[in-house]
Amino acid sequence: MATVTVKLLKRRYGNTPKQCGTLAALGLKKIRQERSFEKSDTVLGMIEKVKHLVEVTES
């Protein structure tokens, strides 16, 4: 199955509480931290909410 790697590029502070919660749900706490997920509608929706803070790589 396809996977998606998400890397936090910008700080999460100073954003809306919903965006901070989304980053926490993705498990991203520190800048340059990466997490891999199986590609699903739920994960893609979460990435869409914080797309200005993260870098996405598909594999």
Rank of each mutant, 00 (worst) to 15 (best):
T16E: 11
E55D: 14
K18G: 09
L53N: 06
R12T: 10
V54K: 03
G14E: 13
V54A: 04
L28R: 00
G45M: 04
I31N: 03
G45F: 02
K39L: 08
I31C: 01
G27E: 00
R35S: 06
I47F: 07
R12K: 15
E34Q: 08
A25V: 04
T16R: 14
E58S: 13
A24S: 13
V50E: 04
S40C: 08
V56W: 12
Y13I: 15
R32I: 05
Y13K: 15
K39S: 10
Q19I: 09
T16Q: 15
C20F: 11
H52L: 11
E48R: 10
F37S: 01
Q19G: 05
G45A: 10
V54G: 01
V56G: 06
K51F: 12
V54D: 05
V43Q: 01
S40Y: 04
K18L: 14
I31E: 09
K51T: 14
G27I: 01
K30H: 03
G14A: 13
Q19Y: 07
V50I: 11
L26C: 05
E34H: 03
E58Q: 13
L28F: 00
T42K: 11
K49F: 12
L53C: 08
G21Y: 06
F37W: 03
K49T: 12
I47M: 07
E58F: 14
K30M: 04
D41A: 12
T22G: 03
L44K: 02
V43T: 05
S40R: 06
Q33V: 03
L44T: 04
C20N: 13
K39V: 08
V56H: 07
D41C: 08
K18R: 14
T16L: 15
V43G: 01
K49Q: 15
T16H: 14
T16P: 09
E55L: 10
R32E: 12
G27M: 00
T57E: 13
L44Q: 03
A25S: 09
R35E: 06
T16I: 11
E34T: 04
L26P: 01
S40M: 07
D41S: 11
S36K: 10
G45Q: 05
Y13S: 15
F37A: 02
M46C: 01
E34D: 08
H52V: 10
L26S: 04
H52N: 11
C20I: 13
K49C: 08
Y13P: 07
I47A: 02
L26I: 01
D41H: 13
H52M: 12
L53H: 03
I47W: 07
L28W: 00
S36F: 06
D41V: 08
L23I: 03
R32M: 12
V43H: 00
K29L: 00
V54Y: 02
Q19P: 05
E58K: 10
T57N: 14
T42P: 05
K51P: 09
T42G: 05
I47E: 05
P17F: 11
R32S: 11
I31K: 07
K39Q: 13
D41I: 07
G14V: 14
R35W: 07
F37Y: 07
L44E: 06
L26Y: 04
A25E: 06
C20P: 08
N15L: 13
S36R: 13
L23Y: 02
T22S: 05
L23Q: 03
K39F: 12
T22Y: 02
E48V: 09
E48L: 14
E55F: 10
R12H: 11
T22Q: 02
Q19L: 07
G27F: 01
H52Q: 12
V56Y: 07
K51A: 15
E34L: 04
Q19R: 11
V50F: 02
